[in-house]
Design a protein around this nucleic acid. Structure first.
Lengths: 260, 260
DNA sequence: CGTCTGTTTGAGCACATTCAAAAATTGTGG
DNA sequence: CCACAATTTTTGAATGTGCTCAAACAGACG
């Protein structure tokens, strides 16, 4: 059970969730009872399908790491975004027949809030709509960056960026010496970065030899010198993460701020 | 002047726009006067910066083709999405310091609706928020697909997909014999597809030789057999486009439908 | 201890890029 | 309307990156 009060979470500021007693997953819901709420346990590989019916289901990750996935008809898989503890998503990427789903990359606990029965009333509720707007908007910002990453960074830059972002994501900020645990396989990383498994592995071996990254096991690593990592990238990872957090917290302008 | 009444446009159903007399750019605005509206002419290469201040500016393309662009610090450029006549976007991709902007790929006319002065009131207006939600949601769906395209399709597939989508985009549906005009240079196409100029040109030459695509000039082409094109791709372009249109028109579920 | 799964490493190949130059197109001024 | 300049597109040759196929290695689990 998570009881923290992460003020940067876009949906924070409410009571405890009635299912998981977390403040992470209390979706903006003034009446506090306009949703059916459940806890869902997923094993690695399990999926939640983002169908038209799921559009009004809000999923918040309570434990573990999940991914929004997409496939082509021949089975090629691409991970669109990673969702970790405290992050919120929903069935929004949901053209009826699109091959999109939420997949657990390791064992997950997810809080599902189903607003379907209250759709009519919620359409008239500005703070509810503002909340799903903010979820969607953050996903758009993330997806937009990922487009640029896949379109314009080479394989080494993608892997370095990934490792750097996982440091920032787990620490909240850069702490150079303590270890980060990767919650996903090399294949998942490859599917996220638009590479293949062997390439990811090869690049990580090279980074290890170069000393830029220290690996304790295939899934545990540390970054001795974060600035050195950033010098290898054409983006300032840390600054960008802070601006995202600030954006979620204060709202970058008036429309994004949560009503009272 | 555009006077058509394209029911599939997400913001349709309103009066004529007071600036351009189009029904395309009438953003959901029940009071009808809560925005300052202007027509903006852009020459090829001109930019509208998507800053924090621009978040409440809604841009609808009246003429021409524009792109949402992003750059890295070393100048590498990636086009995130293309916006053509009737499509709506805004400064939403707008972390304060992010290098994101809207750029005219050819000469454009854009209708700008500035809601900044009415932000307070509009936050309480569910149908306004629902409208910006729908704009953002559609952009998310598009960006998500583009991630999969860049991550998992090879260069030939990307170019074929691009040409096929430009057919669908300009026709509304597939009409095999009449010509499509590309509104952008090879470099722009390359920046959109995460390739380089020469590669795009080479692939198009190969497609021309193979007979899959008929080029009348560098910017004019036709697709003699759309089904043959689709057989080269792991996605059904036409079906997907129809589902997008349906999604925008009817709403894929209750929350997406526009309030009366 | 053996099996299964996931990771690493190697060799060879294909694809996309880089650098360079030619060809085609567009725009301008006479 | 033509000639010339500037830009864009196309083509070529060589290089390098990332992929495929294959095998070895490591760790988890029965």
């Amino acid at each position: 059970m998570i009881t923290g009060s992460d003020a940067r979470h876009p949906l924070s500021g409410a009571d405890e969730c009635i299912a998981c007693h977390s403040r992470f997953c209390q979706f903006q819901d003034p009446a506090r009872r306009q949703s059916r709420t459940d806890l869902i346990s997923l094993n690695r590989g399990d999926r939640l399908v983002a169908s038209a019916q799921a559009c009004l289901k809000i999923w918040t990750i309570i434990q573990g790491t999940a991914a929004i996935c997409r496939t082509f008809e021949d089975g090629r898989r691409q991970i669109i975004s990673l969702e970790t503890i405290g992050e919120t998503t929903c069935g929004l990427l949901a053209a009826p027949e699109s091959d999109t789903w939420l997949e657990a990359l390791d064992d997950c606990v997810i809080c599902e809030q189903d607003f379907s029965s209250y759709a009519g009333a919620l359409r008239e509720n500005p703070s509810f709509i503002l909340s799903i707007f903010r979820v969607t908007h953050k996903q758009l910002e993330t997806a937009s960056r990922h487009v640029a990453t896949l379109g314009r960074l080479d394989s080494t830059e993608r892997v370095i960026l990934f490792l750097a972002e996982m440091v920032v994501r787990t620490k909240g900020r850069c702490v150079s010496d303590s270890a980060v645990t990767l919650p996903m396989s090399r294949e998942d990383i490859a599917d996220y970065l638009g590479l293949n498994t062997e390439t990811v592995s090869r690049i990580m071996s090279r980074l290890k030899k170069s000393g830029l990254v220290r690996f304790f096991s295939p899934t545990e690593y540390a970054v001795p010198d974060f600035a050195a990592i950033e010098r290898r990238l054409p983006v300032a990872v840390l600054r960008r993460a802070n601006s995202m957090a600030g954006l979620a917290q204060a709202g970058c302008n008036s429309i994004r701020e949560t009503a009272g």
